[in-house]
Amino acid sequence: MKKHLFIISALIIVLSLVTACAGQPAAEPAPAGEQPAAAFKAGLLAPGPVNDGGWNQTAYEALKRMETDLGAEIGYVEVEMSPAAFEKAFRDFADQGYQFILGHGNEFTDAAVAVAPDYPNTFFFLSSSRFYDPSVPNVIGLNSDSSQPCYAFGYIAAKMGTGAGLIGGMEIPPISESFTGFINGAHAVNPDFPVQVTYLGNWTDTASAKEASISYIDGGANFLLGNADFAGNGVYQAMLEKNVYGFGMFGDNTEKAPQQILANYILDYGAGLVHLADAVKDGTFKPTSNIEFGLVDDDVIYIVYNEGAATPVPQELRDEVAALYSKISSGEIDTLAPVE
């Protein structure tokens, strides 16, 4: 009997809690309290933790940028990595009047296309996507072409090094395309330059990433490039410990291996997104194609050399790389040419 009493009292607690919660609508007080009327809202669906120091963090920082630059009200969600979750997350944002929603990866395409017709006043952006379809005009693919800066990295590696190891989390376009660019760049210098790709099969195993890096170093490589979110930290650590060269991905990672990182590829997604968001906010955004960011958008995608490296990239090589930029931008060099 006692047990039943316990259960009943527990149930009462649940119910009261539930009603108490329900009676308290989640409508948050608008942050900063600036825009009184319908504030501009920007949302993000991140496929992984936004503190990963890589791909997801890039998007999160872009979102923050919209908050500071445009006074946008922002929200983000690290969706469960299952297609079942994507549509709901899009709808949850759209239902709350978000006008700008970024699905940070091609995997969100199906869900965005399914949801978009119901919310004609909301723009659904997709990272790592070349999606454009006039029949769903409010879904726009945004591709930040990582193969371009990585082509430059490959070029530098082949000029300065003995071999390179590329360590990826899983084989998805933001990863594999950056590697393709790297390999093409290296092979442009020397078709026989040893460069290989390792996939870890996850995004979290820093230890395996480090071990994979060491494998390359033992095999004679002295350049590393990691593109594996969290696990990428293991690659930086291998650079530091084994004192080999490497590059930082998506942001300034210099401090993780101050002497070894020769250059960082900065993806300032915010710079690219803010003016899009601004146009969406003003109602002037009328896309007629998908959007590509490349080296030509030099505020979005660029390379910063590390002057503090033990052996900084020499000036003449930097000049060569700079000369590559225009060829890449003009299409004379195809950084995504298939590698075999």
Partner: peptide, 17 residues
């Protein structure tokens, strides 16, 4: 719980983990 957690992160900024 899972479904709710995502909105919790969206609106209350609490990590869904």
């Amino acid at each position: 719980l899972r479904s709710g957690a995502e909105v919790m992160q969206m609106n209350a900024k609490v990590p869904s983990v």
